[in-house]
Amino acid sequence: MRYVFTFILMYGFWVLLSGKFDTFHLALGFLSSLLVSFISSDLLFADTRVGGRMRELIRFIAFIPWILKEIFLAATHVALIALEPNMATLEPRLVRFRTRLKREISKVVFANAITLTPGTITIRISGDEFIVHALTRKTAGSLPGEMEERIGRIFGEF
């Protein structure tokens, strides 16, 4: 199954990047994507279970507009702090907290989401402890917040 997925992905990339539709280029792409998917399909999809994947993918895609809005707010926040004359609200600090998320993929998505939301950036995950750098006092108080709930629901943990 994962051979098929890797092959479809690779062939899509080939067609997009070459942009030529004659027989020679299409056949060449077919052969090389077949080779790549035969050799290294276990790199891309390490987990062979396919069943619940589609539902997670759909919920994750529904999550993307919200994260885009958060990034927009985050960048505005950073730019406004950088424009202040003496940066009075800047009070950086390190925050440590424990997460309730268990699966690796949800931890990774949570860490990336923390990095992209206003005023916080993930430094390290060790076990289930997050080390986060917060830019102001207000953003340091907002962790872990509602985002953990959302991500837990996407990957079916809560």
């Binding site: 960048a75 950073v78 730019a79 950088a82 940066m87 800047l90 990095t115 005023g119």
Partner: peptide, 29 residues
């Protein structure tokens, strides 16, 4: 405009962690 904010933050923030805030978010968006 976001790139301008990134550059200002990169130049003005006091330490390396705060500069990462500017580079990570402002640059992406």
């Amino acid at each position: 405009l976001f790139f301008i904010g990134t550059t200002l933050g990169l130049l003005r923030f006091p330490d390396f962690y705060s500069r990462m805030h500017a580079s990570g978010k402002g640059d992406t968006i």
